[in-house]
């Protein structure tokens, strides 16, 4: 399958890429290409110009400094999976290590995933449970946008037409905080049917703070605020978990499709929240527990 013909441009810097976007108008950026190229082959995306970011030096890195992790926009999922620095936030490793398959993780990027804003993408669901800022670059100047303000709708972000993602900045959670990400999918290469990200900050037996997000069950990742409230300031018990799960199910807004019915997805999202709370709680107590993508 061939995409429609397009002009190819190789940007020498992110700044130049941003100015190419305003110069060409009908242009798309090529990062990992693992969503864009299939969309172009199916001719859902038909840009006249393609601006390749892959030859720009210094866009792939993971740095820890003053309480934050900085990810270059073109950092591949596989690099995050293999990174001990990124591994300090277990929920980030859960996500990076399970996106699609080895081949896709070798190409796909964190910046591309957020900019694509696919409702079934993994990164947004995980990163809204942490304090995440997206650095957006124009040909002149840049700005920082909170991830919660960055994702506007399905496939829609706060990026202006001549703007791109240059960096993703994640605040390192405090001591006593741990999370888990669980995504259920039918096989490795497909998008999950539903996913849940949970980050708990424990103060002894009490859950001081909770962040809970659902993926693939709405037009964007959904912050389950009532579920968070059900745990915040409480002990993590069967009763409070049940209340959080109930609230998470209520806020899920899935669509029926080949991956499952509305009711099925809502049940699944709740079950994933339940398991993720348990794993996050155990991890916060120092236990090593595996989590990530689940498939047959």
């Amino acid at each position: 399958m061939y995409p429609r013909a397009f002009h190819y441009h190789r940007a020498g810097s992110l700044r130049e890429a941003a100015s190419m976007l305003s110069e060409f108008g009908d242009a798309k950026l090529l990062a990992g290409g693992q969503s864009l190229i299939p969309l172009m082959k199916l001719r859902y995306a038909n840009p006249s110009h393609l601006v390749d970011l892959n030859f720009i030096e210094g866009t792939s890195y993971i740095k820890e400094e003053s309480g934050v992790l900085r990810f270059g926009a073109l950092t591949r999922h596989a690099e995050i999976e293999a990174s001990t620095v990124a591994g300090k936030i277990p929920i980030i490793h859960d996500c990076a290590a399970g996106i699609a398959d080895v081949q896709v993780r070798n190409r796909g990027t964190i910046g591309g995933s957020l900019a694509e804003a696919d409702p079934s993408g993994d990164w947004a669901t995980v990163l809204i449970t942490l304090q995440t800022e997206v650095r957006c670059q124009k040909s002149q100047g840049d700005r920082r946008v909170q991830l919660t303000d960055f994702i506007k709708d399905a496939y829609t972000t706060a990026l202006a037409q001549d703007e791109l993602v240059s960096e993703v900045v994640v605040k390192v959670p405090p001591k006593g905080s741990a999370g888990a990400y669980l995504a259920f999918k039918r096989s490795a290469p497909v998008y999950p049917t539903a996913s849940a990200a949970v980050q708990l900050t424990m103060d002894g037996e009490t859950c001081k703070d909770a962040a809970i997000a659902l993926g693939c069950v709405g037009l964007t990742a959904i912050k389950a605020k009532d579920a968070e409230a059900a745990l915040r300031g409480q002990r993590v018990t069967e009763k409070t978990i049940a209340a959080a799960v109930e609230a998470a199910r209520a806020v899920a807004d899935p669509q029926s499709d080949m991956r499952g019915s509305v009711d099925y997805k809502r049940m699944l999202a709740g079950s994933l929240v339940k398991r993720a709370i348990d794993i996050a709680d155990r991890r916060a107590r120092g236990e090593q527990v595996e989590a990530g993508h689940i498939y047959a």
Binding site: Y8, Q103, R107
Partner: peptide, 13 residues
């Protein structure tokens, strides 16, 4: 050295 799906990479890349 990295496994990639060559149907999802442009030759120019």
């Amino acid at each position: 050295g990295a496994a990639v799906k060559s149907c999802t990479v442009f030759a120019v890349q």
